[in-house]
Computed example of a mutant assay.
Amino acid sequence: MPSRRTLLALPALLAPRLAAGQEAYPARAITVYSGYAPGGVTDVTSRAVAERMGVELGVPVVVENRVGAATAVANTAAAQARPDGYTLLMGTSTLAINPGLQPNLTPKEPLKDLAPIGMVFRSAFVLHVHPGVPARSTAELIAWCKANPGKLNFGSSGTGAVNHLAQALFAQRAGIEVVHVPYRGGAPALIDLRAGRIGAMFQAVLEALPALQDGATRGLAISSAAREPLLPDLPPVAETLLGFDAVFWQGLFAPAATPAPVLARLGTALRAATEDPVLRARMAQQGVAIATGDAAELRALLERETGLWGRLIREADIKAE
């Protein structure tokens, strides 16, 4: 059995040293930039994961909200930060969307300017419709749209939002014509969906739940490839449109050129946080599926979605508002 002295020495033994004469990492608080305002699911999840990472690392990990320009303010600040492991980014799907939708925003090449550390969460959307839409499944909705081209008003949280791209991908894959109605957020869109002023929407599960539960809307499917624990009876869209998978995701990044030992230490701490059963259960109650994935998986996801959304934006001629 290890002695108490050995156990106390473990953090120092595990901490990577960057070079001879430099301090062990981490030696002080770590800042994580977030491009979202305080209080939302993204912010709440960021803080929960950061706090748990701080326990693992032995230093505070503090989330700093830098809102603006479709998260480009936070993304750019992190990409341009000193690559020493003390400034990180809770990056999201916007890293894959912005290069195609708003190529003037920085970083223009996130795959080159940022170093992936690991996945944080994936959050699916529910495809739900107003009861006046005569469809009770994805297949029925597609058939109705084909028989009534251009008659379905499909809401979103805004042009270029992931749920808008999910709708555009759905229409493209299904070969249907719908009318996109962008809103400034999911809440006003839901008001109009309840009232029947729009007919359908891909919406964050927690936002949609009250309307589904009181019968104001009818759930048809889930946008992720896997079923949603909060709505287990709804099949994935992919059961009708093979390969369909459109989710909002979040992952942890560092500036490019951050030393490999530092990235490895951060990756270990992130995995400990995302595998914590208490944290996972707490986030599941908010409709967030905490995801465990290493740097390679996050890089592959960002690369795949940059290609997917960029191609869709071009083919569907989607323009930023």
Rank of each mutant, 00 (worst) to 15 (best):
D276M: 08
L279N: 06
T92C: 07
M283Q: 15
S224Y: 04
G85W: 02
C145S: 15
R47Q: 14
G251E: 04
E109R: 15
M1E: 13
A171H: 04
L89W: 03
P11M: 07
A300C: 09
L308P: 00
G199R: 13
A147E: 15
A296D: 14
T258E: 00
A77H: 11
L165M: 07
R122Y: 12
G310H: 07
L127A: 01
I176H: 03
E23I: 07
L308E: 13
A79V: 02
R4A: 15
R197W: 10
G160A: 07
D84M: 05
S223V: 04
L252V: 06
A124C: 09
L105H: 01
A27H: 15
I222P: 00
G287F: 06
P182S: 10
A211N: 08
A260M: 06
Q213D: 13
E228Q: 14
A9S: 11
E140S: 06
P236M: 02
G40S: 08
D233F: 12
L95R: 00
A320N: 05
P38A: 12
A12W: 11
I191A: 14
V162H: 05
S224Q: 07
L298D: 02
P182D: 09
E64H: 11
G287M: 09
N65M: 02
L302W: 00
A257L: 13
Y86D: 06
V120R: 02
A50T: 09
I30W: 08
L190V: 08
K112T: 12
L302H: 00
A195F: 09
T94C: 04
S46I: 04
S137M: 02
D214Y: 11
L88V: 01
Y183Q: 08
G21N: 07
H130Q: 05
A12Y: 10
M119R: 09
S224N: 14
V49F: 10
L301S: 02
A166R: 02
P116M: 03
M283H: 05
A70T: 10
E177V: 15
S123N: 13
R218C: 08
H180I: 12
G100W: 01
L10D: 07
R17K: 14
T258H: 02
P182R: 11
G215K: 11
F244I: 03
E275W: 10
A273Y: 07
V133D: 05
I318Q: 05
W309F: 15
K151I: 07
R5Y: 11
F125I: 07
T292Y: 09
V247F: 07
R184N: 14
A226K: 14
A74D: 05
F125T: 01
E303F: 07
E56I: 06
G40R: 09
H180C: 12
L14Q: 14
S93K: 08
S3T: 15
Y183V: 06
A296T: 13
D43G: 04
A269P: 01
A264C: 10
A70H: 11
A187Q: 14
S157F: 03
S34Y: 04
V237I: 15
T217Y: 01
P236F: 00
L212K: 03
V247R: 04
C145P: 01
M1H: 13
H180W: 10
L169K: 12
V262I: 14
Y36C: 07
D214H: 11
P255Q: 06
P210Q: 10
M283T: 03
G310Q: 06
L220E: 00
A168S: 14
T258A: 03
P83F: 11
W249G: 06
M201E: 15
